[in-house]
């Protein structure tokens, strides 16, 4: 067995998994609170990547350089992703609260199509080259052929973000309000939680995570177009379902399982069929555990 190849696949699987995790968290948090599959979440990630591309492109042209570009681009991308997330919720989802389950879902699919084509028309249908914003670290050189600097940055940033999110949800006031709303929206409202605000904050957090993912992936892969959000969104959503939708640690586990499955399937079987493996895994797990890996089976009250 070729161990170096194995480790390479392992790393690539973890990197993929981390990216999926960043985006899957947005799906799962929103689902946990308003039981809606935010289909347009992948588009927020795509918009984050586009804004970062535009900002970094403009800054490069106007003579900025180095880490300042990365920081500014990531910051502005996060701000815009959050703004789009809030606006999306206000327009496409809030008027549908309390409507039959299928309505917001279809609205979300519509919003996803709209945002994709909006970017297509406003920018370009072609792939754009994404500048390599993450520098190559010198200390990584000896193992660079297995794990590159961008991979390291992705893993580190993702881990830090997860820790930050956990602290936020477990130990802050807004985190407590989010957990309360997740348990019982009506009761939370009665005890003085501003549910609308909690929902907005959830969308902001999810969107910012997606934007971070967008910036990281953009500079890791090197090119983006208006369609990148769709497949990554579908995959991240798959990861969230795998782990048990609505469950935050579940989303991370599901994302890593999915990333590793894809990387190994692509490496040892065929890269053309990696999506088939991803969805095959999903169907398999849902048959065995319909609520996902960490999900709890919900007994409907009769």
């Amino acid at each position: 067995m070729d161990w170096a190849y194995f480790v390479e696949l392992l790393c690539s699987g973890l990197v993929r998994g981390s990216i999926y995790a960043l985006i899957a968290l947005g799906y799962t948090m929103v689902y946990g609170i308003i039981q809606l599959i935010n289909f347009a979440h992948g588009e927020i990630y795509m918009i984050g990547a586009f804004v970062a591309l535009i900002v970094s492109g403009a800054l490069t042209i106007y003579g900025f350089s180095g880490v300042s570009i990365l920081v500014l681009a990531a910051l502005i991308a996060a701000v815009y992703a959050a703004a789009y997330g809030i606006t999306l919720e206000r327009i496409a989802y809030r008027p549908l609260r309390g409507a039959p389950r299928l309505s917001p879902l279809i609205s979300a699919i519509g919003a996803s199509l709209f945002l994709q084509n909006y970017v297509l028309l406003a920018q370009t249908p072609d792939f754009l080259p994404f500048p390599a914003l993450i520098p190559d670290f010198e200390f990584m050189e000896p193992i660079a052929h297995i794990v590159g600097s961008p991979e390291l940055v992705i893993l580190v940033v993702t881990t830090l973000t997860m820790i930050g999110l956990t602290v936020l949800i477990k130990h802050t006031k807004i985190g407590k309000a989010m957990r309360a709303t997740q348990q019982d929206m009506i009761m939370a409202r009665l005890t003085g939680v501003n549910v609308d605000r909690v929902i907005s904050v959830t969308f902001v957090i999810g969107s910012v995570l997606a934007a971070i993912g967008g910036v990281l992936v953009g500079s890791y892969i090197g090119q983006i177009n208006f369609y990148i959000g769709f497949m990554v969104g579908v995959k991240a959503f798959t990861a969230a379902v795998l782990g048990g939708i609505g469950n935050i640690p579940g989303a991370v586990i599901g994302a890593l399982v999915l990333g590793l499955t894809e990387a190994f399937a692509a490496g040892y079987v065929s890269s053309a069929y990696e999506d088939v493996f991803a969805f095959g895994l999903l169907v398999l797990i849902l048959i065995v555990r319909p609520a996902g890996i960490l999900g709890k089976a919900v007994k409907q009250k009769v």
Binding site: A92, P95, L96, S103, I106, S107, S112, F114
Partner: peptide, 10 residues
């Protein structure tokens, strides 16, 4: 199409 889907649902 996307816009119509959203507006119709609402």
């Amino acid at each position: 199409f996307g816009g119509i889907m959203v507006l119709m649902m609402i």
